[in-house]
Design a protein around this nucleic acid. Structure first.
Ligand code: FES
Ligand code: FES
Lengths: 144, 144
DNA sequence: CAATATTAAGATAAAAAGGTCTTAAAATAC
DNA sequence: GTATTTTAAGACCTTTTTATCTTAATATTG
């Protein structure tokens, strides 16, 4: 469904949304350590996300990655678009060229309903809202 | 969700279920051609499926791949197990080590309901039944 | 300004997935 | 039995994905 890159990216962004503030940024080391993600790989992912204005960063002492208010208003789908492209979520589960109800494969109908819902959630929920939801329900982001 | 291998495999098996009989087997060439799948790659996939008794084959003149009655009674999940392993469908969508309600990631609940349904379908529907359903509703298996 | 901490950038490597080719083996038809 | 057709098997190549490493740039602190 998501590439490993994208899984790492989503988890990192959500973690930042919960734990970082403008005054307390988080370094790649800590982030990679906490979330059990290969450090250099995560660094690269965060660079891409930074370049695409999904996360913010600052260099030097007490620097690190963090989310500005503006970043928290971005919706989750944006992360996926940046890291995986949009096609990955919408293409036919059996790999057929077209995926729509007029060329439905045998599993299209079963899959489509769910995908619409999931898609909606990803498009309508901001990073900030997701973070809040995670906090409230104590959802998991780490490999414990 | 599925690997390319598995997508090809599923489509090929379902096509065989619809079109082949004991007396009219289908060669890799025709199969690959019809379904737009790289020939040698498909051959390899079919070998694995044959070795695992999901499809049947015979060599020589008028040989090819086909499904025996027994093959048609196998459920779809078997194909996936053979080609992708079972883990791919059940693991956490964010890549966390454990995926269950007590260690739910932020999307576990949204995903789990669908996965259960899909899983059920794959486990409960035999290849023969799927073929019949495809025939009835004219579902698509080819890249037209 | 100098020392230091940290991201940015990009080259490189390793592993996995996807795809091709060649030869062998088997079954059938003649 | 021989020629032919077809799968079986496995070596090999290519591309994509995942992961690592090195150096540069930049900001902060003192
Ligand atoms: S056509 Fe296969 S999922 Fe839509
Ligand atoms: S814990 Fe993430 S999908 Fe189940």
């Amino acid at each position: 469904m998501f590439s490993t890159t994208c899984k790492y990216g989503i988890r990192a962004v959500l973690y930042l949304a919960i734990k970082s503030t403008n005054d307390s940024k988080i370094g790649v080391d800590e982030l990679a350590d906490t979330l059990c993600i290969p450090k250099h790989f995560l660094a690269k992912i965060l660079q891409v996300l930074t370049k695409n204005k999904v996360v913010s960063s600052s260099k030097g002492r007490h620097g690190g990655f963090y989310l500005k208010k503006r970043n928290k208003q971005i919706n989750l789908m944006k992360i996926i678009e940046v890291l995986d492209g949009t096609n990955r979520l919408t293409c036919c589960i059996l790999g057929l060229e077209t995926c729509d109800s007029t060329h439905a494969c045998p599993y299209h109908n079963i899959v489509q309903q769910f995908r619409n819902d999931f898609y909606q959630k990803l498009e309508n929920e901001t990073i900030g809202e997701a973070a809040q939801r995670i906090d409230e329900h104590d959802f998991n982001l780490k490999n414990l």
